[in-house]
Design a protein around this nucleic acid. Structure first.
Lengths: 350, 350
DNA sequence: GCGGTTTTTGACAAGGTTGTCAATATTGGA
DNA sequence: TCCAATATTGACAACCTTGTCAAAAACCGC
């Protein structure tokens, strides 16, 4: 009922017949292999066009070594961050003739190697993806990397990673970005600057904090541990941090939040108390997620080129696959951008 | 380099040998086909377990008629709505041994049939997904449905759809939900109730508005066209609507927004003017997206079980595939829930 | 206990591509 | 012009499953 029984779509054989060559020659042309005369190349391409030929992925991957499938491993995609990266990854996959599929695995970073192996067993061996894109919070997990390596599946990681092991990595310079944020704040005259950390199992939390600390020192300021709060990258934890800051005898005059969601929560906490941002508190976020412009005042933040990160990750991964020669580490750093909006101002002098 | 050359993973042949049966029997057992003795079934299962056997998806789909691939067609996944549905869909796919892949196609609903055909040509014929999940704004597009039908690919649509054509449909009762919203507002004593529409190419906009209108009439109120504003489902358009309402001589005392993002924009517009929600304006949203609790006051809204919608869509689709008998239309309605939070109150009497 | 059903099992082909390797055509040098 | 080397092409096997169909086994009623 559902699918028509007679599959009348063209096969490689049909193209070969129409072009008057062998199927192997068709295969060569379509895969851009050498050793085919230009004249035949054209003929084959024309025939393929005319017949609307589309190669069968399953036959290709059964016989060949490629599945033309890239797997994105993530946790819970309900975050603008993952979402935007995924967007870029899908686009790049479509351009390259690959397909992006999604795997959701929970708390993988908390599991033992053999549990991870089990979790990946089916996902990775059924379809045998040609590569895997690893996002936070899994990008920086050593065990996951180990299992994937053991399975012989190439990996590209997105976001800051401190693993020594060789591999593909696409990120922005979180460290430098954090420094720029602090510089902006100190330039405005702030000297009591707070910080909201993100999830502790994500490397970006540590890198951003370390940039923050270094820049503070460079500005001759000390990092007051009372002004450094934990967080989990979500709105609520930013809100909680805000409550905490508001309860302080000497609250900070500015806070750098590790991401935008928490920054929004922080602003909400202040606003709720009748305080004004940026008058009573300057706030800087990180990511330039959609919430940054869906809040008032508009959030000053660091823009991560998220969908570019996703697209670049896929492109690098795919190009690694063909260039058998390229081994070892390869790290790509994309540009971030400081986005000045309305949540920062000089500290109130009173 | 990347992948180990010697593929030592077990094949069906290995399982058959170990279990002392033919490969066809293994195939039968693993696919839960009838006509195998219970004793052999156990033997085969044990052998498969012992060898960590994982069937090759490509061989399966090359020979069989299934690809075990479900394709989610969407527009731009940068919306909490799409995201949550996708989440449920991935989970369901994983449970069922399917894989979810993503296709991004832009403005498909604006294209001609042959353009759509071209856009789908590669995506759909390479991998030959067993089914397609269609989300807004494509769920309700007739041409897309036609092309997919022509290609013989089963489709499940998520969200309200008015196409007569048979097919799978998973949705909530948007109409009834809208009525509940109005009832809540009229119960509070509101009689000047505004409405913010969503994108005009999405059926939900019309269904929600029609529920709104009917409930207004039922309450003895008339729908004042001055209080009905267009929107595009995003924060900004809600904000714009808010500006408009604020400019009115007699603004509404309550507004029903077709989704949460716009409701948040509306609240932002009022708050920015120094007005208070719900004192100066009651607001109700739709979706219960994350923004509903990432704004202050917390948004009263209708909760859509988004990830359930996605999961149900996939499950229905897959079950249709095996039950060859089931044809024709099938419509599943999941429960929504009215979520009372802090953006509604009786109208100010002054 | 026998012929006829029905159930269970297996041998074999087929699915559409790519890899291997041999065959053929072309080129270059003597 | 001929031989060796190289470039181009094609025949055929292989990849790993599932569908078909026939064989074998088990069951039934008389």
């Amino acid at each position: 009922m559902a699918r028509t029984k007679t599959d009348n779509s063209a096969k490689m054989k049909d193209v070969a017949d129409l072009a008057g060559v062998s199927i192997k020659t068709v295969s060569r042309v379509l895969n851009n292999e050498p050793h085919v005369q230009e004249k035949l190349r054209r003929k084959v391409r024309e025939a393929a066009d005319k017949l609307d030929y589309v190669p069968s992925q399953s036959a290709r991957s059964l016989r060949g070594s490629r599945s033309y499938d890239i797997n994105l491993v993530c946790h819970h995609p309900d975050s603008a961050y993952v979402n935007a990266i995924q967007f870029g990854a899908v686009i790049a996959c479509q351009e390259l003739g690959y397909q992006l599929s999604i795997s959701l695995v929970e708390d993988l970073d908390q599991k033992s190697i053999s549990e991870i192996r089990d979790a990946f067993e089916t996902v990775m061996r059924r379809r045998r993806p040609d590569g895997v894109v690893l996002l936070a919070p899994y990008a920086n997990d050593e065990k996951i990397g180990f299992v994937l390596h053991e399975m012989g599946i190439p990996v590209v990681r997105v976001g800051p990673v401190d693993l020594q092991k060789q591999g593909l990595l696409v990120e922005i310079d979180d460290y430098q970005a954090a420094i720029e944020v602090v510089r902006h704040l100190t330039d405005l005259g702030h000297d009591r600057i707070g910080f909201i950390r993100g999830s502790e199992n994500q490397r970006s939390t540590h890198v951003r904090f370390s940039g923050f600390s270094v820049a503070m020192e460079a500005a001759g300021l000390t990092v007051d541990t009372d002004l450094v709060r934990p967080g989990t990258f979500d709105f609520q934890s930013g809100y909680d941090a805000g409550q905490y800051f508001l309860g302080l005898k000497t609250p900070p005059t500015a806070v750098f939040s590790s991401n935008d969601d928490m920054a929004a929560g922080l602003v909400a906490a202040y606003t709720e108390r009748g305080l004004k941002v940026p008058d009573d508190l300057s706030v800087v976020g990180f990511d330039d997620a959609s919430i940054a412009t869906c809040m008032r005042p508009y959030l000053t933040t660091i823009r991560q080129p998220l969908s570019d990160l996703g697209a670049t990750a896929v492109r690098e991964l795919v190009s690694t696959l063909s260039e058998a020669s390229r081994n070892g580490a390869h790290r790509i750093v994309l540009d971030h951008e400081f986005i000045l909006r309305d949540t920062t101002a000089p500290p109130q002098t009173n």
